[in-house]
């Protein structure tokens, strides 16, 4: 996108658009997000390998970090949402989702990478699809196909008269819309955060170079603010990974829940 700005040159300021997250492939159809995705699983794998190479009851530094991550997913997110023994089979999924989303989000903060992979909608779509399949399959194997649909679409305690209204709505929100909101929330947050940062950085640069006297003042301010925003984005990136994992756990927990 920097070429675009340079091309725009001294003329009109070209705001960063949606194409700023879409990179042309380097070689043979391989794009930047693909490289980052592969890098992410290497990072996570090496991190866990280092932590668990020599596991001890009294953890070292790396093991402690890995254990805190695991503990966060297991006890803070998982325990709340999925009750008791049901948690263990879904724990790998939750850990995978959390670490995968977190690392891919935090790419937005890492210098030179500077692109949250999740700001490309294809990847959240894929993960959300997996989550959708998992929680529906979990619910169906627990309650049976019809029992599961009944469980998800007709909440107990609703008067019979309103049921025709409630059932389609619940079906819409619990079955159809969930994967969309799950993936789009992640995508939109990452995408918007990335765009905001770009606006601040490129706008600040433009003001500094072409903005005249006022721009000489406003440009640096914008650049400094962009650094502040970057840390704010770091918080958002973590929060989104947390929310994504928590909602995954919540959907699974809700599907497995016994009828009251």
């Amino acid at each position: 996108m920097s070429t675009r700005v340079l091309a725009a040159g001294g003329g009109e300021f070209q705001p960063p658009g949606t194409n700023s997250v879409i990179y042309p492939p380097f070689v043979a159809g391989i794009t930047k997000p693909m490289v980052l995705l592969v890098l992410s699983i290497i990072i996570i794998g090496v991190f866990f390998w280092l932590a668990l190479r020599k596991p001890s009851l009294v953890p070292g530094k790396t093991q402690f970090a890995a254990e805190s991550t695991y503990d966060f997913v297991r006890n803070t997110i998982g325990r709340d949402m999925i009750s008791g023994k049901d948690l263990r089979p879904y724990l790998p999924l939750l850990v995978t989702v959390f670490t995968f989303v977190l690392v891919n989000n935090v790419y937005g903060f890492v210098p030179f990478l500077q692109l949250p992979t999740m700001s490309n909608p294809g990847i959240p779509y894929g993960i959300a699809l997996v989550v959708w399949l998992v929680y529906n399959a979990a619910g169906m194997s627990r309650h049976g196909a019809f029992g599961y649909l009944k469980h998800q679409t007709s909440p107990p305690g609703v008067p019979v008269g309103i049921k025709p209204l409630v059932i389609p709505l619940e079906f819409l929100s619990n079955i159809l819309v969930r994967p969309l909101t799950l993936s789009l929330r992640l995508f939109a947050n990452m995408f918007a955060g990335h765009l905001v940062l770009l606006v601040f950085i490129m706008g600040g640069e433009y003001l500094l170079l072409h903005g005249g006297v006022l721009g000489m003042v406003a440009g640096p301010v914008a650049l400094v603010l962009s650094i502040v925003l970057m840390f704010f984005e770091l918080l958002i990136q973590f929060l989104q990974a947390y929310i994504f994992t928590m909602l995954t756990a919540n959907y699974i927990g809700g599907a497995l829940e016994e009828e009251h």
């Binding site: 909101t181 929330r185 939109a188 947390y242 929310i243 909602l247």
Partner: peptide
Amino acid sequence: RSVLQGIAILGFALAEALAIFGLVLAF
């Protein structure tokens, strides 16, 4: 606090979903 935190974040995520619909429809 720890109990409320999870619930608050969950509520936040659910409310945010509406804004996301807006964004999606805008695009």
